[in-house]
Amino acid sequence: MQTPKFPKGKPPFSVVLKERVGAYFAETQQKITGDHRLYWKAAILVLAFVALYVHLVFFTPAWYWAILECIVLGFAISAIGFNIMHDGSHGSFSNRPWVNTAAAFTLSVLGGSAFMWNNKHCIIHHTYTNVHDLDDDLDAGIFLRLSEHQKKYKMHSFQHYYFWFMYMQLYLFWILFSDYKKYFTRKIGDMPLKKMSVMDHILFWKFKVINLSLFAIIPIWMVGFTPWLIGFLVTTQIGGLVLSLVFQLAHTVEDTTFPLPDDANKMEDEWVVHQLKTTANFATKSKIVCWFVGGLNFQVEHHLFPKISHIHYPAISKIIKQACAEYGIVYNEYPRVYQAVASHVSHLRHLAKIS
C-alpha cells in the first residue's frame, strides 16, 4: 500500500528541537545512550526475573506464595520489556550495537519476536502514530474501538467497562497468536512485512521453542499441569494488563488526535508536530513510575527522539516544553497516572457513543 507523506514545517520545528537537544548533550558531554543507571536497573530486573522463575519452578512455595510471586513475575516481565527490550530495540540501550541486539532479544526469550516488534513498533508505529489502518497498535480486532475511524460494533457500547479484561489478554494474544499471524501473512495490519532473511526465520522459530520450553514444558514437568496453568495465567494476565495500560495511556486519551491523510495522501502536519498531537505524557514527576516503565511516561520525548535512552528524558523534556511554548504547539501531559487512566476511560466511553 502507498503510505502517506508528511509535509515540511515552516519554519522547521524539527530542526529547532534537534539543535537544542543536540546542544544539551554537547554541553553536558553525555552520550545519548544508557549509562550505569540503566545497566544497574537492567541487572536488578534480570536477576529478579531469574530468582522468581527458579524459585517458582524448582523450589515451588505454598500456593498463596506462588500466586504472589507470579504476580510479581508479571510486573518483572513488563519492566524488562519497558526498560531493557524497548531501549535495545531502538538502539538506545548502549553505544555498542551487539549490546542493543542482546537487549532487544530479551523480548524473544519472553515469548515475543524481536523481528516483528522492530517492524511493528520501531518502524510503523513510530512513523504513523495513531493513523488509522497503518498504526497496528490501534488494532484490537472487533473487541475494542480505539479510534473514531474504526467500525463500531454493539459490544463497543460497553468497552469502557470490559477493556480491563481485554488488556489482560494482550500478553497471551501476543505470544500465542499475533506474531504467528504476522509471520504467515507477511503483513502487519495492511502494511507488508519487511523481508525476512534465512537467519531471521531461524531466530524466530528458535526463540519460540526456547520460550515454550521455559514457560510451559519445564514448569509442567516440575510442578504439574494445573499448578503451571494457574501460575502461567496469573503471570500473563498481570503482564498483559500492565503492558497494555502503559502503551494506551501514551496515545489513546482524550487530548491526543487520530489524523488521516488528505485526498492527495498527505498528512496535515510535519512529522514532529504529528507526534506531539498524537502522544501524551503521564506522571513525569514520579521517580517510581519513571523507573518502572523505563521512561515511557515521557512518551513525547521518546517519540521525538527514540534513539535517546529514557534515562535522559526528564532533562530533555524541559527543552521540548519550552520549544512547544514558543511555537504555540500543545504539549499533552497528565500529572498523575490516575488522571491518564481516567482520560483513557473517557476516550473509550466517547467512542462507545459516537458512530
Rank of each mutant, 00 (worst) to 15 (best):
I288T: 13
K318W: 04
I288E: 09
V300W: 00
P306F: 06
K285F: 10
K321V: 05
H302D: 04
C290V: 11
V293E: 00
I311M: 14
S309T: 11
L304I: 12
V300T: 13
Q322L: 12
T284A: 10
L304T: 05
H303V: 06
V293M: 03
I308L: 01
V289H: 07
F298K: 04
H310F: 09
H302V: 10
I316C: 07
I311W: 02
W291T: 10
A323Q: 13
F292K: 00
I308W: 00
H310K: 06
K285E: 14
H303K: 02
P314R: 03
F305W: 05
I319C: 08
S286F: 00
I288W: 14
K287P: 07
K287H: 14
Q299T: 07
K307H: 15
K318Q: 13
S309A: 15
G295S: 08
G295W: 00
H312C: 12
S286E: 01
F298T: 05
P314C: 06
P306H: 06
G294E: 02
A315H: 10
I308G: 07
H303R: 08
S317K: 08
K321Y: 06
K307T: 14
T284L: 08
C290M: 11
C290K: 12
K307V: 12
P314D: 09
Y313F: 12
K318V: 13
S309K: 06
G295A: 08
G295D: 07
Q299K: 03
I311Q: 13
I288L: 13
I320E: 06
I311V: 15
H302S: 03
G294D: 01
K287V: 13
H303I: 07
P314K: 02
K307G: 14
A323D: 15
C290A: 15
V289F: 09
F305A: 07
G295P: 02
P306C: 02
H303A: 08
K285A: 14
K307M: 12
G295M: 03
K285P: 02
Q299I: 09
G294L: 04
I311K: 10
I316Q: 01
V289K: 03
V300H: 03
